[in-house]
């Protein structure tokens, strides 16, 4: 089984809204998979279902080939960074990471090592004693990322991890995500097609709760063959698949 994540005909209904409509796609083990789509397409809902924050109305979720039910939901440890990082604003950074480590039942002997590892990975060493509420948006995002990595999860779900970061931080996070792919499966959503082109091996484009494209980035480049750079091609494809006629027109012109 070389799929780490597989969704089969997943539907999620909220009152008066069908957020996901028979959505199916898979993410290969130890890969970085880009998840893109316009606002309200269903990206965050899909990520919430995979991470276990919410449940699908119908359909199946498989992690490493095993169907996830209510009983085995907590068997797989998943690192999840939502769009707005889950932070306790009155805690210090190190205190927060210690609390998260405890939530994940990291053994006493390994807690300090795990905290030091994520502090170094996410470049938080200068702010460990700072109150989270007083940090800048970029640092809050890094703390959010640190909590998603602290238990060394096999699957990492990142919902727009680069939002609010400065260009230097974006570049650092990009390298970090790339490096994570060696031992982890990373699914991340973004609006920056440039990031997808630089980091991802595979992408899925979602629109109106359905997957409209799920392919290798290199294959997409071959299919389009517009002599644009990959970011440009992705932008054209994105606009085509999400029916943004105005944007396509502007792009071609």
């Amino acid at each position: 089984m070389d799929n780490a994540i597989e969704l089969v005909n997943v539907t999620k209904e909220y009152p008066l809204v069908r957020a996901l409509d028979n959505l199916s796609f898979s993410v290969k083990k130890n890969s970085v998979h880009g998840f893109i789509g316009p606002n309200g397409a269903g990206k965050s809902t899909t990520m919430k279902i995979i991470s276990g924050v919410t449940r699908a109305t119908s359909g199946s979720l498989y992690l490493f080939g095993e169907e996830i039910t209510q009983k085995n939901r907590k068997k797989y440890s998943i690192g999840y960074l939502p769009e707005n990082p889950p932070l306790y604003m009155n805690m210090q950074v190190d205190e927060y990471l210690y609390f998260v480590a405890k939530l994940w039942k990291i053994s006493k002997d390994n807690i300090a090592t795990s905290i030091n590892r994520v502090i170094e990975t996410c470049s938080l060493s200068n702010v460990t004693k700072r109150i989270i509420g007083n940090l800048s948006k970029g640092f809050k995002q890094r703390v959010g990322l640190a909590q998603a990595l602290i238990h060394n999860p096999s699957i990492i779900i990142l919902d727009e991890p680069m939002s609010g970061l400065d260009p230097k931080s974006i570049s650092e996070i990009r390298h970090l995500i790339k490096s994570l792919a060696m031992n982890h499966t990373v699914l991340f959503s973004t609006h920056q097609l440039h990031d997808v082109a630089m980091i991802c091996g595979h992408i899925s484009i979602v629109n109106n709760g359905q997957i409209v494209k799920n392919d290798k980035v290199s294959d997409i480049q071959g299919d389009l063959n517009t002599n644009q750079n990959i970011t440009g091609e992705l932008e054209l494809l994105f606009n085509q698949l999400t029916n943004d006629q105005g944007a396509i027109h502007d792009f071609i012109r």
């Binding site: 276990g52 924050v53 939502p82 889950p86 932070l87 998260v100 939530l103 039942k105």
Partner: peptide, 14 residues
């Protein structure tokens, strides 16, 4: 408000 319920939901606590 802080989205921390998501953190609690996915962690090992019930």
């Amino acid at each position: 408000k802080n989205n921390t319920m998501d953190l609690l939901h996915i962690s090992k606590v019930n």
